[in-house]
Design a binder for these strands. Sequence first.
DNA 1: TTTCGTGCAAACCATTTGCAGCAGC
DNA 2: GCTGCTGCAAATGGTTTGCACGAAA
Lengths: 154, 154
Amino acid sequence: MPIESIPETVFQNLRSKGLRITPQREKILQIFMELPESTHLSAEDLFKMLAGKNENISLATTYRTLKLLSQFGYLRELDFAEGHKHYELNKDKKPHHHIICLNCNKTLEFEDDLVNEVGYRIAAEKGVEIVDIQFKIYAMCPHEKDDESKTHRS
Amino acid sequence: MPIESIPETVFQNLRSKGLRITPQREKILQIFMELPESTHLSAEDLFKMLAGKNENISLATTYRTLKLLSQFGYLRELDFAEGHKHYELNKDKKPHHHIICLNCNKTLEFEDDLVNEVGYRIAAEKGVEIVDIQFKIYAMCPHEKDDESKTHRS
DNA sequence: TTTCGTGCAAACCATTTGCAGCAGC
DNA sequence: GCTGCTGCAAATGGTTTGCACGAAA
């Protein structure tokens, strides 16, 4: 279930870096927190969603905020090789992963402890500090009916 | 070690689809085959490399050929969330994976049977047909010295 | 009051495309 | 000779940036 309000730590964190809490930043974070579990949006998606709520936030600010929130680890930046990035709330420590259908562009999510363990093991072996693990399966789904229902299409 | 000549099946395969064997396509495939194991190039990299060999192939054709060869499965399309794609020869059935340093943009390759098995298992569970598996670890490497030696930087 | 953030429009950069001429087959 | 392919230049699409004004702290 979605979190209802922005945790105080977020504000503290931003302020401690000399950054400001603006209505635009609050609105955008709020949107992500109200989204159904692990929904991901492109900058354009978010911009339209804001416009739909009569929040007149410019596209430039949308981009700037997405980048900022990703750098702070509040959002996770995903790219599905479609020419634009997607963002989702990075709420849990356990990354989930994606199957991308190359035919219909739908994505299917899954979690797998083994995948994450392997990621941590390899990072340890190589001596690097993990920021994110992304496991992607590009595939063809059985597209019996070309329905639009699932997650997202680019 | 690099393969030295383009397999006959490639030509047959293209021709059987009504496509033609042009010097441009041959040159580009040849370049990838002469590359050290699992080196990946961006379109721009390839274009410059061609220019360096006095092969005057236009950037447009470079892009068109990369896409075509990827669709045929001869190349593997990689994206490391840097704003442009990379391509590598798709010679083996067993995909290898990447660690991308978010600090210096270097990539480190690794192979892991477990990762691939998990991919196949999940694809089977979800009933999709695998095209490619990409496991990426975004990380920070210990950048004691900012050397340029390793694979590639965007 | 001092920065930082925003909106706007222009700039950028990777990639794609329309078109006319050229070249596999 | 038919049709696909190429080069060129222009177009596109996502994202970034310079600048002047407005607003957090």
